[in-house]
Simulated scan of single mutants.
Amino acid sequence: MSGNTYLLVALPSSISRSNDPEDAFTAIQSTVPSDAGTILRFPIPEFKIGTLDALVLQADELTKLDANVEGAVGKVVEVLRSIVSSPQETERHKTVSDKPVEHYLRSFSWNKVKYRSDKSIAELLDALQREVSSLDNDIKTKYTAYQQVKSNLVSVQRKQTGNLSTRSLASIVKKSDFVQSSEYLETLLIAVPKSLSKDWLRTYETLTPMVVPRSSKKIAEDNDYALFSVTLFKKHSAEFIIKARAARYTPREFQWREGAEEEDKREAMDVQANERRLYGDTLRLARTGYSDLFMAWTHVKALRVFVESVLRYGLPLDFVSVIIQTNPKNAKNVKKPLDKAYNYLGGNAFGRDKKGNIKDDVGDLATGIMGDAEYPAYCYFEFEVV
């Protein structure tokens, strides 16, 4: 569901007296007020673990990848918002494996087919990075192509429905409106604001030398413009166009040819068909891209929880991981009791204030694992789905 806040928390089984994962899960449930959030299991398989130095480096790489995937997911959402008709329609397309995002996160299980858990963390990291980069580039390329054809469609539609200063003239002018087969003379078409029509008729003969007297004819008019023809010697055409523009008239580039009107219609039909095709392709790619990127993002989160839990709690692996669904307002009401109950897990590794809470200045290890975020005494990640 849009607007939810999710907390990923991992704690050692030793938080329960029995040292049992089930009892540890129950302990977490009893720690967080039921009206603050919904607590569900977030199962993570065991992965091949290398050296401690490698894990620290991988924690840093996962932090960067997490931010990259989040950015890629956000860009896909912007694509969906720009091509569909309403926010409700956008939400309808934001699914993961055809399930609502909320359902996917609440029932998460590691996809062992797509991301084989028998591979090392380094191999999984590399596969996820390549997948995210490929999806991001594919969506960007397709969306750019769609934007281009949509811009072409707007131009074509303007040619069909705009005023006389922009629309196609193929269906308006006739062959007889032009001087034919002259070595020296040519006919120009000028769109003149209706309020300036009298000025045009009074001055067009004097804009440049060698304008044929009384050659201007009004061919058509709409609410804004009148379309006039004017005949002059070709060698002064470029100068005439410059002078016409300076007088706030709009010269229209148009060469009479047989079949121009039919060509315009075919062009419009081709562009419209191409726009519909690319719209469908872009929407399908954005839908599947959102699903695949969000799935990748969740698996990156799971890897971060695993790596940090190993770094924090050591071996043998004995921790329980949960996902807590809440909202931005209640997130603090979830974290506060967790901090109160489990701050002791920081031991003497971090400085503490007079109340026993961990201080913010926890050193390079915190920066490596959590970036600029607050560093709690236990494995904790917070993110929003918008």
Rank of each mutant, 00 (worst) to 15 (best):
E239G: 11
D222R: 11
L232I: 06
A226D: 12
K234N: 08
N223V: 03
K218Y: 06
V211I: 07
I219V: 12
P213D: 07
V212N: 01
L232K: 07
V211L: 02
D224H: 13
L232T: 05
V212M: 08
S215T: 00
S215Y: 00
I219L: 09
K234T: 10
D222F: 08
E239V: 10
Y225N: 11
L227Y: 11
K235L: 06
N223G: 15
T208F: 08
R214C: 01
S216I: 00
S229M: 03
K235W: 07
V212R: 11
N223C: 03
V212Q: 08
A226I: 00
S237I: 01
D224W: 01
K218R: 11
K217C: 01
K217R: 12
Y225M: 15
F228S: 04
F233K: 05
H236S: 12
F233Y: 12
S237Q: 03
V212F: 01
A220G: 05
A226K: 00
S216K: 02
E239P: 03
D224A: 14
E221N: 14
V211C: 03
A226N: 09
K217T: 04
A220Y: 03
T208M: 06
D222G: 12
P213E: 07
F228K: 00
E239H: 09
H236W: 03
E221R: 07
S229N: 11
V211M: 00
T208D: 06
A220V: 05
M210P: 00
L227H: 10
S216Y: 00
D222E: 08
E239L: 14
V211F: 01
P209G: 15
H236Q: 13
T231K: 05
V211S: 06
I219R: 02
A220E: 10
K234G: 12
V212I: 14
M210C: 08
K234Y: 13
F228T: 05
R214P: 00
A226M: 03
F228Y: 11
T231D: 02
R214K: 07
D222T: 10
V211H: 08
S215N: 02
V211E: 09
A220F: 04
L232H: 07
A226L: 04
A226G: 12
V230E: 07
F233L: 13
S216C: 03
E239T: 13
V230H: 06
N223I: 00
D224C: 05
L227I: 02
A220D: 10
S237Y: 04
